[in-house]
Design a protein around this nucleic acid. Sequence first.
DNA 1: AACAATACCGAACAAACGTTAGATTTTGAC
DNA 2: GTCAAAATCTAACGTTTGTTCGGTATTGTT
Lengths: 203, 203
Amino acid sequence: MPSEKSGKDRITKADRTRARLIEVATRLFQEHGSDEVTVRRIAAAAKIEAGSIYYHFSSRDQILRAVLERGVGNARDEVLGAVAEAGADSSPLVRLRAALGAHLKYTLRHHFSSRLKAIRRLPKRLRDQHMQQERDYAAIFAGLLAEAGRKGLLQSGFDPSVVRMLAMGALTWAAEWYDPEGAMTPDDIADELMRVLTKGIAK
Amino acid sequence: MPSEKSGKDRITKADRTRARLIEVATRLFQEHGSDEVTVRRIAAAAKIEAGSIYYHFSSRDQILRAVLERGVGNARDEVLGAVAEAGADSSPLVRLRAALGAHLKYTLRHHFSSRLKAIRRLPKRLRDQHMQQERDYAAIFAGLLAEAGRKGLLQSGFDPSVVRMLAMGALTWAAEWYDPEGAMTPDDIADELMRVLTKGIAK
DNA sequence: AACAATACCGAACAAACGTTAGATTTTGAC
DNA sequence: GTCAAAATCTAACGTTTGTTCGGTATTGTT
């Protein structure tokens, strides 16, 4: 295995190969299910031989771990970016709309949900770590809801955490039925959800 | 392969074994992902040898097909049952609440979502058939929403099919985070969703 | 140019997979 | 009890999987 935490911060060839491996593995995990992707396919897509992968990763699960880690981290960055872009002084509900939209776009782009089921197979230690990342991610949305509540924008008598999970779940699951060829854009869907979320559909 | 469409309606031993195979396969697909369940594990759980399975099913995919078929069929039955129980003359929104509750309960009990992933791997012919079943299932909810619209119970300006998918998705995804040990019951969650769906959360 | 360290190849491994086919047992009708 | 049909067993098959390892290029430094 190549340089781990060595003082050398020079970009070696192994670093590039490792990055390329994570890149193609991520793409393959998106396009096909995470179970259909073999190390040989990853290797082929990275223009490398199968055995060479084990110079960079000690096992297949380590690749999955790297992909998941980068995945959640990126999603968090994108959602936080969208929230920031909405402006810190905008309404919490506007920022929530931005966050949900970014979440949906990321989920669609990376077919997030198909990965999650792989988590159960992960070693306990790594799984816990990933769950923590997931909690941090959810906290963004919970924070916005809480802020809206504090500013008196919300009704009372509902469970914010359940609503948060229902809303995020609705979008996460949207990746299963969303049709890029259809008339709806991701923003349309996010708008629709936000509309239901705020005003409801009943007269 | 045993009796197919023979006039004999006697319950043979193969019928029982076949039923038992579907039963344990269903359970195994729930508990573990559908990809981790091997033919040998199904056989072992059914107290049979691996090779004997091929007396009842011509391939592994045929088992999966049988499981999916029974799964969607049962879900449909339960949802329709809950709707009927609510009374044909009750408000469409009350019946929608009943349908969503039944959907959630079935999803929780059978860990439905974990199965859907396998659909992409199914032979095209079988997949189309299953998609059709899925559409029939969704039509129950679409019908209730449409009826509510016709009776003037709903606002205008939202897309019913998107709302339907968001609502069903929110519950389907609930299977990923629902904690049976927690304070919430499935009915609580269905109530919460129905509350948001109708009244929204904003002031 | 020479020489370690680095990066990768390529062939093999054992294990597990779905599946097959012949032998063997179990079942139900007579 | 007999005997064919039905149901299951048993032992293998050919693949594919993740992984290992000794060898071979490639690289960067002197």
